[in-house]
Design a protein around this nucleic acid. Structure first.
Lengths: 124, 124
DNA sequence: TCCACTATTCTTGTATTGTTGAAATATGGA
DNA sequence: TCCATATTTCAACAATACAAGAATAGTGGA
């Protein structure tokens, strides 16, 4: 994943309105919701909802499907998994045992070649 | 997790500079880096690095520890796991089997190819 | 004490984002 | 065709974020 893609996804989730939209759609899963339902559920003006839905879709966070005069939006979960993988890439320099996170997080250390860590002073 | 906490975390990751800082610190794991090393590694002016580090720390994305005249920063991985859990709460209306995998597990285990959680609508 | 080093804070200018109301586009039915 | 519904686009304004330079605070050694 490219950095620009990642920052666009995070930016999409950095507003309360868009975070609400995303979580609502995550809960709906496959069913998704049409634009009007989303606006109604969150008490948003239609144009405001449309503004955010467009941005989230362009960022890759949502998918949209035309249904007559409705637009059905769904959360793009695989994209979210890629984002998390990008975020935790080369976690703990590929040494899971050094990972300071709980056991469930130890799995965030993929078995990739040791990364080119910047030269640093060897602290104790 | 409260919504405001989540949006602040996402906002922290929505700039290229801060995303670079976070990923750098994720790779360093428990060792972390002091402010000057971070600025040097990313070719940032010291005041710019300090500005972003402060924001990320206040958001809860990083932790900081004083070491003499140095400030050692580390990625707050447990907080990231909480964030992911918040994001995928009640995924698919509480029927995770419809996703193909538990979100919390899938989120932090991208060692295998990301599973097709939801068959997304073809957006091309 | 003075000095070098580390890091942060302050200030200013610029750019971007979010919200609102009004208008426009697209679809399906009478 | 005409009309109601669903959604998007446009325009304007306030609010906020970012970057860079200068100045300030804290630490440790000579």
């Amino acid at each position: 994943m490219e950095k620009h893609t990642a920052t666009r996804l995070f930016e999409s989730l950095s507003s309360g309105v868009r975070l609400d939209i995303y979580r609502l759609l995550v809960r709906r899963g496959l069913d998704g919701l049409v634009a009007g339902e989303i606006a109604a559920a969150l008490a948003l003006p239609a144009n405001s909802a449309s503004f955010h839905l467009k941005g989230m879709t362009q960022a890759g966070l949502l998918t949209v499907q035309k249904e007559g005069r409705f637009q059905r939006y769904r959360a793009n979960l695989p994209q979210m998994l890629e984002l998390i993988a990008y975020l935790t890439e080369e976690c703990c320099a590929g040494q899971p045992e050094r990972c300071g996170a709980p056991p469930s997080a130890a799995a965030c250390c993929p078995t990739v070649a040791p990364p080119p860590i910047i030269p640093t002073v060897d602290e104790s």
